[in-house]
Design a binder for these strands. Structure first.
Lengths: 227, 227
DNA sequence: TAACGACCTAGCCAAATGGCTAGGTAGCAG
DNA sequence: CTGCTACCTAGCCATTTGGCTAGGTCGTTA
């Protein structure tokens, strides 16, 4: 629907054939080279830029206005930042489709990414070589591409009454300390707040993560790439 | 020293130039393609086989007797199996060098891998494109290649009086239940053993992982890829 | 056979945790 | 101004936990 808006965006040079112009964002060289190799093996795809940091992604998208952004959300020590980028890109460039390529599968991350406008979510370890090209094509046709296992996760999330709530900064801070094996008292001392407050944050985090023990909180937060 | 033994092993076809024959083991297609692409970009390297499972690695090494095996230890749900493979390969084929290419950095895994004969340990996210070829060459020259950060980890491990002990199967089982947020009583019921035994295993795991709280145990075990 | 590692069990006690209710402030958006 | 969110604090009480000592069996290996 927004396809005609395409011409308003700076285009770089346009291919005579309909070539899909792709930006790849991943901190890992091997993955970047692999993606480029797999995609450019079949005609119709061109990786026009690579990015290895959150800022670089924004720069690359601003500069090239690609058809598709393939991104690993974990580009630094703060996965939340990756989610914000999905939101920003889909918001500012509706013609640019976003395909998330994750290392691990976490319900929270998947749901958040899709909620913020991601057009696809694939898991690196599960994806087959030919699925990449197909996926990119499908996304361009307006489909939403969900990799093996991802679909179930989404269905599960929709089925449950509980909606995915995201943790506040403070809650994540506390959880990081818990993961280091500190007691509430020690965490309180480290964060210069009361022990009661630590318990308060952990209670809230428990509810949001649907966990009942601090060990489970740590596990779920770690699985979500929050630590 | 064992280089003359080389000719006893079935060779496939031998290159006129001294080409390094490499087997790549990784469950991830993108990584496999990326590695092949990076390595074969410079002359002198040939990826002669790829493996995606533990069994396939053994088969490939048996069949090709490569100069170098580049392997991600996490080829299934049991990283320990990867360690055993390192041991088996370096044991049975002294002429085959093993370069571990890991996703994450865990002291326990690094130390165990080196102890079992790995000739190098690089971290995917840290490695630069040109470091791969250099690393393989260095390993062939008999050097031990440790990626950024890996060296510190090893030094730390050597410096500490405590030697890295590995967790038993039972301990890992218990930790998995802890990660799910179960109490000792619940775990005991699930595993059909006494609550005392659960505490016993957790005490031992605490000592081995140098943790003092179950949340920390879960975190460290997860970081080591044990869950 | 003896030693060893992995496994299993019991009981004690101080400390930590989980689950709850019941307050407070500051900042920001409608 | 009102509502909302994030943030902070207090107290209570049952349950869980960590840390300890002190036993046991079974199978493998020296």
């Amino acid at each position: 629907m927004d396809r005609e808006k395409r011409s308003d965006v700076p285009l770089g040079r346009r291919m005579p054939q309909a070539t899909t112009r792709i930006v790849v964002a991943d901190r890992n060289v091997i993955t970047r080279v692999g993606l480029r190799s797999i995609l450019e093996r079949s005609t119709g795809f061109a990786v026009i830029a690579e990015a290895t940091s959150y800022d670089a992604v924004i720069d690359a998208v601003d500069e090239h206005g690609p058809d598709v952004l393939i991104i690993d959300l974990d580009l630094g020590d703060d996965t939340t930042r990756g989610l914000k980028i999905v939101e920003e890109v889909t918001d500012r460039y509706p013609a640019t489709k976003v395909l998330v390529l994750a290392n691990t599968l976490s319900e929270m991350i998947v749901v958040e990414a899709l909620r913020r406008g991601a057009n696809g979510y694939l898991c690196k370890d599960d994806v087959k070589a030919d699925e990449l090209g197909k996926g990119v094509k499908a996304i361009q046709d307006g489909e939403t591409v969900l990799g093996k296992g991802v679909g179930n996760l989404v269905a599960h999330s929709l089925g449950s009454t509980r909606q995915t709530e995201h943790l506040t900064d403070r809650e994540v801070d506390v959880i990081k300390h818990v993961a280091k094996g500190l007691s509430n008292k020690q965490i309180a001392a480290a964060m210069f707040i009361s022990e009661s407050t630590i318990k308060f944050h952990l209670q809230n985090a428990s509810r949001k993560l649907n966990a009942h023990r601090r060990a489970e909180i740590v596990h779920r937060a770690a699985a979500a790439g929050l630590l």
